[in-house]
Amino acid sequence: MKGYGSFCPVAKAAEILTERWTPLVLRELLLGSRHFNQLRRGIPQMSPTLLSKRLQTLEEAGLISRQSGDNGHWEYHPTRAAREAGPIIDAMGYWGHRWAHSQLTPNELHAGRLMWNMRRSFYLKHIPCDFVLYIEIADTRQKRWWFVVKKEEADLCWNDPGFEVDISLYASLLTLVQIFMGDQPLLLARELGKIEIDGPNHLVKSMPAWFPRSKYSHEAPEGRRSALAS
């Protein structure tokens, strides 16, 4: 990596933390991704070769520890140095959502990345019961997704898991991203006809409490929320 040629701590930190893709790799690691394929799902635009290179760089910089897993595959664990960088990554997310908020162009929308982020963003303490959530996105190559949601965790299934579906949701990818990012309240999107939800009344009514949203969603500018809702 190229350095700034300075002893300044800000410069030294930037040499490690601001290299292209590195903040996103750290975000995935700090959110619990431990395997190469998990990291790839969180950053699908990043090539496997470049991901391997960034992991090696982070290991050399002392931010990750590579360990052999039970199945013989490598696991990547954030070190204390990486964990202490967590507030920096979060601050970038909050700042970006408030001041560099995207207009959501088509090349920024990716169904797989959205589903992977939704998987770890359920508000599990608010779910009324265990259930299976089916999501169908009309305007993507892979249209169908299943979440098996329990009090302990939410599991994302890329293929039909064979369980009875309790609640179904139909929407465009853009609408789902807007809901996840906090730009469009879920039930308002339903009232406007942008999303269709089928399921028991008690589950549908409880959705605003548990439906996945970005941890940065409350930083969405009020003016932008109002414009999207109109």
Rank of each mutant, 00 (worst) to 15 (best):
E164R: 13
K150H: 10
F180H: 13
Y170G: 05
G199L: 02
L173Y: 03
V148Q: 07
R225S: 07
N201D: 15
D198S: 10
Y216W: 09
A220W: 00
E196C: 13
A154S: 12
A154G: 05
A227F: 13
E191G: 05
F163I: 02
S168H: 07
C157D: 07
P185W: 09
P221E: 04
H202K: 08
G223Y: 11
T175W: 05
S172H: 07
V148D: 05
L156N: 10
I195W: 05
I197D: 09
L173V: 05
L173F: 07
Y216E: 08
E222N: 07
D198T: 10
G223P: 00
D139F: 00
E164L: 09
L188A: 14
I195C: 14
A138H: 10
L203T: 11
A154H: 01
R225G: 02
E152F: 00
C157E: 09
A138V: 04
Q184H: 15
K215L: 07
W146L: 03
I135C: 09
P185I: 06
I179C: 03
L176D: 03
L186G: 14
K150C: 02
H202E: 14
L203V: 10
E196T: 15
K215M: 03
R190T: 12
I137A: 00
H218F: 09
A227N: 06
P200I: 03
Y216A: 07
R141E: 14
S214D: 13
F211P: 02
F211H: 07
F163N: 09
S168F: 03
L174H: 12
E219D: 02
V204D: 06
I195E: 09
P221G: 07
H202P: 00
G193C: 08
Q178R: 15
P212D: 10
L169H: 02
S214H: 02
E191L: 14
